[in-house]
Simulated assay, not measured.
Amino acid sequence: MRNFKEIQEILGTPPDVKKIYLIGCTGAGKTSLVQHIIGSKKHGFPVTSQRRTTIAPTEYVIQKNIPYKTTIILKNKNDVLFAIEELIQGAILKAKQDNSVIEDIIFELEQSPDDRFKLNQMVSSDTFSKIANDIITNVLPPIQAKDINDETLLSNSFIKSEIDKIVAEILAEIEENFKIACKNTHTPFSNETLVIENIDNKDEFILKTKKLLSHDFGSISILAEYIRIEGDLLVDWLDPSLEFLLIDGEGIGHSLGEKRDTLSARHYNYFNYCNSIVLIDDANDPFAAGGHGAIEGIFLNGYQEKFKLVFSKTDKLEQTDQNAYFRRNLNNLRNALKQDDIDFKEENKDTFKLNALDDKTINEESKKSIQRLLTNINSSKEKIQSL
């Protein structure tokens, strides 16, 4: 896996505009906000759901008078092989359990437990059925005959050779489907970036990008490591003079190994890189999941001047006096942060409220909040650190 500096070197220097990093728990509404900012909600792009959706950090370079262009950095072959092997190992361990059925084995093969690697986007159900049957027919009997336990299972030479055969079969299908998706214009697992360009129509450009990066079968999103999408993407109800770079990354707690109350180190590269850090938190349960930990990490490490707080899903609040509700929650957070000597000064008036982000047409109240947020960021003077 490439580090942040290597990725930026591949992509090249972005324009001299304000850089904004969106952070928040999975499902808080980061990607929905992006949809409204670039006016792509009608196309369902980027893909959103209540599950872990953003599987590759994506930059949106929003600037007037630049051509539409999508650049996709693909994962290294070894990273993909490792992910496939993990799924196969999990399927074999599942098959070894008593009362396991073929559907259980297929379920283990289709995608990783944290939804980050969805193999069923590039491998057919027929292939999964065949592999599951092969595991039951060819792999299980020797395991049972030799009484191989879970600890020695994956170090057994026979099992390893069977896993290698399955990996090769899956990889061949991925490579074939990749060529189909890219119309044989790109070689899978090369060091070259995959580029979409020379399209003048915004809708056509978004739909072509979506086709490659959707969660439908035949997309290549599981192979994407990092994405940059650029062009005159700003929706027409926002101030046309706004220009910025927006980064939508994996949500807090996206990986099951990441604690929701502790901010992962992967976020800090973006904190250094960006002028503003926008935390999007669910108004119905503010600071209960990863929001509290994110604020601790931001403030303890000296990024408080870059911090902006957005409350999403305010339309679902069952509060007569919403302002009083937000003031109470902010005050409770302030008192909790005092225990770590964090001077949290954000008041309700400093926050931004968004509602009904899932609707195809955003209402005027949310439009004004988004305009105010972006205008505030564009006029700010936060400094960024070099990579």
Rank of each mutant, 00 (worst) to 15 (best):
I384P: 01
T193C: 14
Y325T: 02
F307Q: 07
C182Q: 09
T185D: 13
K383A: 14
K208M: 11
D340A: 03
D321E: 13
I229R: 04
K160S: 13
E305Q: 15
N120D: 13
E318G: 03
E225F: 08
L154V: 00
I163R: 04
I220E: 01
I73G: 10
G24D: 08
G290D: 12
Y68N: 03
S219C: 10
T209P: 01
K338A: 03
Q371Y: 07
K306R: 11
L87T: 08
S190M: 14
E347D: 15
N120S: 12
I73A: 00
T262A: 07
S124G: 13
E243K: 11
G24A: 12
I377N: 00
T361V: 14
F344R: 05
L279F: 11
T193M: 15
I106M: 05
K75L: 15
I84H: 06
P14Y: 07
K208R: 14
T71M: 14
L373D: 05
D104E: 11
T71V: 15
T48Y: 12
P240V: 09
D203E: 10
K41D: 08
R327N: 06
N184I: 09
K306I: 00
D164R: 11
E250K: 05
I159V: 14
G39F: 11
F217P: 04
I105V: 14
F326T: 01
N99H: 09
F45I: 05
N198R: 13
E197G: 06
H254C: 01
L81E: 11
D315R: 02
